[in-house]
C-alpha cells in the first residue's frame, strides 16, 4: 500500500493537533499555580477545591440525573424508531428522527424554549431539560439500532414467524437479543450526549437548575481557575470509559455515525 513519509508526517501532525490541547488541560489540572501558564509543581489541590465546591457537585448531580432519565427514555423511543425505520421504510418518521440530529443545535434550543414557554406554559427546569435531551438523543439511538438491524439476515425473523411465533414472541426471543448490543451502545451514546450537552441545555434550563456544562461555562466566562481543568479531567475520564464501553458492545458504532 502507498503510504509515503509525507503522508505519515501530515497524519501524525493532525493527531498531535487533536491531542495536544487535551493533554495541556490534564497537565495543568495538577499544576500548583493559579495561572494556566508555567509549570510550578505537582498538586492535588484543584481536585480538593472541586470536592468542596457545592455548586459544582449539585450541578454534577443534576447532570447525572438528567442523563440517566433522558437517555433511558430516548433509548426506548429510539429503539422503536430504529426498528420502525428499518422494517417499514417510513419516510416521514425517518425525516423527523434524523433532522434534529443534523440541524444546528441552536435552532432546536430556541424552538423548544419558545414552545415550552408560549405553548406549554412550563416553568423551565429539570423537566424541560430532560424533554429537550430526549428529543435530540432519539435520532442517535435510532441510527445505531437501525445499523445493527441492517446487518442482519431477514430470514431469521421469517423463520421465527414460520415456526408459529407471534410478533411479540419474535421480538422478545429473536429481534431483541440480536439488537441488544446496539441498544446498549445507543444508551451509552445518549447518556454521553446528555451529560455533555451545553447549547440546548443553555436555552431550556431557565434560571433555577444548573448542569455541569452550564457551570463550567459560567466559570470559563467569569473567572478561569485550574478547578476547571480538574473537573474537565474527571469528565474526560468518564466519557472515555463510556465510549470504550460503547465500542465494546457495538464495534460498528463508529462507522454507523459516519
Amino acid at each position: 500500500m502507498r503510504r509515503g513519509p509525507w503522508l505519515w508526517a501530515a497524519a501524525l501532525a493532525v493527531y498531535a493537533f487533536l491531542y495536544l490541547p487535551l493533554v495541556i488541560v490534564i497537565v495543568y489540572s495538577f499544576n500548583d499555580s493559579r495561572l494556566n501558564a508555567e509549570w510550578v509543581g505537582f498538586t492535588w489541590h484543584w481536585y480538593e477545591v472541586l470536592l468542596h465546591d457545592e455548586d459544582m457537585l449539585l450541578a454534577a448531580g443534576n447532570s447525572l440525573f438528567i442523563a440517566l432519565v433522558s437517555s433511558s427514555i430516548a433509548t426506548v423511543l429510539g429503539t422503536m424508531a430504529g426498528i420502525a425505520m428499518q422494517r417499514y421504510n417510513l419516510r416521514l418518521l425517518s425525516f423527523m428522527v434524523l433532522t434534529p440530529v443534523a440541524m444546528p443545535e441552536v435552532l432546536l434550543g430556541v424552538s423548544l424554549l419558545l414552545f415550552f414557554i408560549q405553548v406549554l406554559n412550563l416553568t423551565l427546569g429539570m423537566i424541560s431539560i430532560i424533554l429537550a435531551h430526549i428529543t435530540f438523543s432519539i435520532g442517535f439511538v435510532a441510527v445505531i439500532v437501525r445499523a445493527r438491524l441492517a446487518g442482519m439476515d431477514d430470514s431469521i425473523f421469517e423463520a421465527a414467524r414460520d415456526l408459529g411465533a407471534t410478533p411479540w414472541q419474535t421480538f422478545r426471543h429473536v429481534t431483541f437479543p440480536l439488537i441488544l448490543p446496539g441498544v446498549v451502545a445507543g444508551w451509552l451514546m445518549a447518556f454521553t450526549l446528555s451529560i455533555d450537552d451545553f447549547v440546548i441545555t443553555f436555552f431550556t434550563a431557565g434560571v433555577g437548575v444548573s448542569t455541569l456544562p452550564l457551570r463550567i461555562y459560567s466559570m470559563i466566562k467569569i473567572a478561569v481557575t485550574p478547578e476547571v481543568n480538574a473537573v474537565s479531567t474527571i469528565l474526560m475520564l468518564l466519557t472515555l470509559t463510556m465510549i470504550l464501553l460503547a465500542t465494546r458492545f457495538a464495534p460498528d458504532v463508529l462507522k454507523g455515525k459516519a
Binding site: L18, L22, V25, P213, V224, S232, M236, T239, M242, I243
Partner: peptide
C-alpha cells in the same frame, strides 16, 4: 478510534483548552 476519542470529551472542554493554549 484515536480520531474519535478527543471528540468524546466534552465540547466545552475542547473549546476551553484553546483558551489556555
Amino acid at each position: 478510534l484515536l480520531v474519535v476519542l478527543p471528540f468524546a470529551s466534552s465540547f466545552l472542554i475542547r473549546v476551553y483548552a484553546w483558551m489556555i493554549l
